[in-house]
Amino acid sequence: MKQARPELINVPLMQYFSLKREPFSDNIKATELCELPSVKEISSIVEMVCMNHCHFAFTGPTGSGKSTILRYVCDRQERLGSRVLMINGGDWGFGEFLRQVMERLSIDYRSYHPSTMIRLIQVQMAKSEEDGHPVLLALDEADKLRNEVFHQLHLIVSAPEKGASLASILVCGQDALADKLTNPMAMPLRSRMYPGYYIPSINRQVYRTYVQHHMRLCGLRDDCIEDLALEHIWKATSGNLRSIGMTFRFALQYAANHDFGKIDAACAKAAFSDWWDTSGMVDAFAELQEPDHAG
């Protein structure tokens, strides 16, 4: 017998705060992204790199907005006329990487002959440029790719007869990406790259701008968040974008569940309380285990 659907334990945020959409969502349109200083700088560099058939890499810590920025600049380059091939990196060798590129180019080739695969990719890239749509090969989470990919990546965009690359390559990932690009075997690729960019944490002023931007997107009123709560969240998240969004969502949920009507300092503290810290439970357990000498 089918059981009835259980009632929600948490109060629905959308209805409680009369929101237009999910607050501080990661799933927003590229055109709705808050244009932080790093977004503007990377967009400018990528545009220049594509115009000059060069390559570019940017890195940053977990939660710094790398994938979101990559999505933004790729959307922008598509609107400028580029043909963007977006690939999420994995633990792949060069052969599997070539298959991923061929799939994005709609090339049907099932055998494993790297030289032939490279040539087919080059033909499609050249044709796309002739049609007025130069290719931008964008690699997210590129730090996961094996070193052999970076040793040979330049081959798929090389065109000695033209004297220029067939496409621009844009890679982003965590700090391990820098180690792979500085490997001596990756020199053919790195020698064609614009100097890399590291995404810094945002400062307090940019944090306020970022929060206000997301509040406008979801329709959250300014009086729904107390200034002291904003300050608590800023200190707890250290300017990490992912942490800021998650903490705000948890704080909003805490406020809704307790019918506070707004995020105050207590909601903010409850949102980032460290539930990984089990020291209190450990101490309590140790006390229970101590022998009772009273008798």
Rank of each mutant, 00 (worst) to 15 (best):
S158W: 00
D259C: 07
T182E: 05
A138T: 15
S238P: 00
H214F: 14
I225D: 01
Q100F: 10
Q253I: 09
Y254P: 00
V135G: 10
E226K: 09
S111A: 12
A266L: 10
P200H: 08
E161V: 06
A286G: 07
K20A: 15
A286S: 13
Q15P: 05
A126S: 12
L8H: 07
Y109I: 04
K144R: 15
F248W: 00
L155T: 12
D91K: 12
D274P: 07
L177H: 02
D227G: 07
T59Q: 09
G173L: 04
P200M: 03
R21W: 01
L177A: 03
V211R: 01
H53A: 09
K40W: 00
H151R: 12
E290T: 15
M215R: 14
E22K: 15
R192Y: 07
D140N: 13
G90T: 12
P291M: 01
I42D: 00
K40L: 09
M215W: 08
G173A: 06
S106Y: 06
F250W: 01
S158I: 01
E22V: 13
S191R: 13
A229P: 07
A176Y: 08
R104P: 08
H53C: 06
Q124K: 13
V84F: 03
I69Q: 01
T237F: 02
F285K: 05
S238Y: 03
G295V: 08
L105S: 09
S128M: 12
S18T: 15
S111C: 01
R76Y: 11
A159S: 13
S44L: 06
R71I: 10
L230Y: 02
D26P: 13
L220W: 02
M187L: 14
D292W: 03
D131W: 04
L220P: 09
V101P: 11
N257V: 07
A229S: 08
M185Y: 04
I69Y: 01
P188R: 06
A255D: 02
P114K: 06
K235R: 11
R204E: 14
T247L: 00
K235E: 10
I45Q: 03
S44C: 03
L189R: 04
Q205F: 08
A159T: 03
E41V: 10
S25I: 04
D179Q: 09
E7K: 12
V46T: 06
R110W: 11
F58Y: 15
A159H: 02
E7H: 04
S168K: 00
K29E: 08
S18N: 15
I87T: 11
K20W: 07
H113N: 12
G295D: 08
G261Y: 11
P184S: 08
G60H: 03
L33R: 01
H55F: 03
N88S: 14
S115L: 05
L33W: 00
P23N: 10
A294G: 05
A178M: 05
D292M: 04
G261I: 09
R5Y: 02
L145N: 08
C218T: 10
N257P: 07
P291Q: 02
A294F: 06
M125N: 02
S82R: 06
E287N: 11
G93P: 08
I225P: 03
K40M: 04
G245M: 13
Q174S: 08
T116L: 05
N52A: 12
R104Y: 02
Q15I: 12
A251R: 02
L137M: 15
A265R: 06
L228S: 14
A286L: 14
A266W: 04
E161G: 00
R221D: 15
S243Q: 11
L155D: 05
E32V: 00
A176G: 05
S273L: 11
